[in-house]
């Protein structure tokens, strides 16, 4: 197994763990953590593809990872704000209790 394959395996595993967490957890914060894992799996991909790629002088992959880290931070800020506000309204962040909209 080459280095690139090992990194891709790691990132796929991380993505799968994150997705499983996001889909099965009932707590909104834990779902958010799952989403962050998925985003970081993609970042590992970017860095690995850049490192083992043909042209390491162009730092496109690193730039993409830096941008996506800052976007993920913004996303966490917005998400936590929405979760806090939802908690103030219904005093729970359990997703199973969020069932007043149906149809």
């Amino acid at each position: 197994m080459t280095g690139l394959q090992a990194y891709l395996l790691l990132s796929s595993l991380l993505f799968a763990i994150g997705l499983a967490g996001a889909l099965t957890r009932r707590n909104a914060i834990l779902v958010l953590i799952g989403i962050e894992l998925m985003l970081n799996a993609a970042n590992i991909n970017f860095i690995a593809f850049w490192h083992y790629g043909p042209a390491t002088t162009y730092i496109t992959g690193v730039m993409f990872a830096i941008f996506s880290i800052s976007v993920a931070a913004a996303e966490a800020a917005v998400g936590l704000a929405i979760i806090v506000a939802a908690y103030r309204h219904s005093h729970t962040i359990d997703l199973d209790s969020m069932n007043s909209l149906k149809g």
Partner: peptide, 8 residues
Amino acid sequence: EAALKYFL
């Protein structure tokens, strides 16, 4: 509630 679902 809708916004939280939309966000997740």
